[in-house]
Design a protein around this nucleic acid. Structure first.
Lengths: 167, 167
DNA sequence: CTCCAGCTGAGCAGAGTGTCCAGCTCCCGC
DNA sequence: GCGGGAGCTGGACACTCTGCTCAGCTGGAG
């Protein structure tokens, strides 16, 4: 899957002003509404755009502390540990990574003291041997996608776009 | 800032079906449209809901490899390093964390081989002493917020809802 | 009791959406 | 050179939703 320059502009525009509709989008892009609509449909069915869910700020919910925990998992306990972690609301994200059978998870908590409770709950499970936690102090680059989209779009903007085998 | 049970249902509903409008939302929630609209406005102005940007899948853009890099920063080089990392499109996220003046960043790349190029670019900067990279193999829990919202909402759902001191 | 805040149900004009359509251009293969 | 397919254009239609306003109701606080 590659995106061209128009696709890139659509995504960037949506990222900057999510509330605009297809009509306004087509005006900004200088294309017909049908074109904008078709491109957007294609981006969504391709899975490039997964959806437009609300971006919730955990801090505003009362969870201002973020941390990353690296977990050491006992051999063969992976599936159980995943299920355990998935059941903890404060676990926002979980990855299995290279390294000695490790996992990396993103946690939030109500305070530094509350983080202890969360970690206790996370590691209070038989398959987890050890946890190393790093508390986030600052977030100089919040989760972003625009620069990557611009790069991906510019790399294919002037290439052939037809002749795709199947899609 | 706390949210009540209705606020929680609004967020969960939006997370599950982002395309629905205020009118449809009010029907599902069993409240008047004005109420749903007022609640949603409040959630947005409170910063609980930051926006409705498109959720872009880097893999569909041609960047299927995700990694987390822990960076050792030389004393006093923090600001420069941040600017450097912010200029790299493949750096999707950057945090400063506790530990010996470290940073944690999320990277994507076109392949494992391409990851080497990205890491070279990331660490090819004077203020960075060392980088430890963990490649993501699987993502058992993708970034999620619903369980946390439900917890935050249930904790306040049956409490007094009026008489909040300030908000 | 009175005041205040929040919710309700209703109405209105305006804008956007989903969905057609015909026509055009470009590129491909024959 | 010619026909076909894909994509874009500009327009049209009915329908729905939005933003905004209003009066009335309810429950808690002073």
């Amino acid at each position: 899957m590659t995106i061209d320059e128009l696709d890139g502009r659509i995504i960037v525009l949506l990222a900057r002003e999510p509330r605009i509709g297809v009509l306004e989008m087509s005006r900004r892009l200088g294309v017909a509404r049908g074109t904008a609509q078709a491109r957007l449909d294609r981006l969504q069915s391709n899975g490039v755009i997964r959806g437009f869910g609300p971006q919730v700020n955990p801090a505003a919910l009362g969870y201002p502390v973020t941390a990353f925990a690296t977990l050491q998992i006992r051999q063969g306990q992976g599936p159980d540990v995943r299920a355990h972690l998935a059941s903890v609301p404060e676990v926002l994200e979980l990855h299995t990574t290279t390294g000695s059978g490790d996992m990396l998870c993103r946690l939030v908590a109500r305070s530094n003291a509350d983080l202890q409770r969360v970690i206790d709950r996370v590691v209070g499970f038989d398959g987890i041997d050890r946890a190393a936690t790093a508390i986030v102090m600052e977030n100089p680059v919040p989760l972003r996608i625009i620069p990557l989209v611009e790069q991906a779009a510019s790399e294919h903007g002037d290439r052939t776009r037809t002749g795709e085998p199947d899609g």
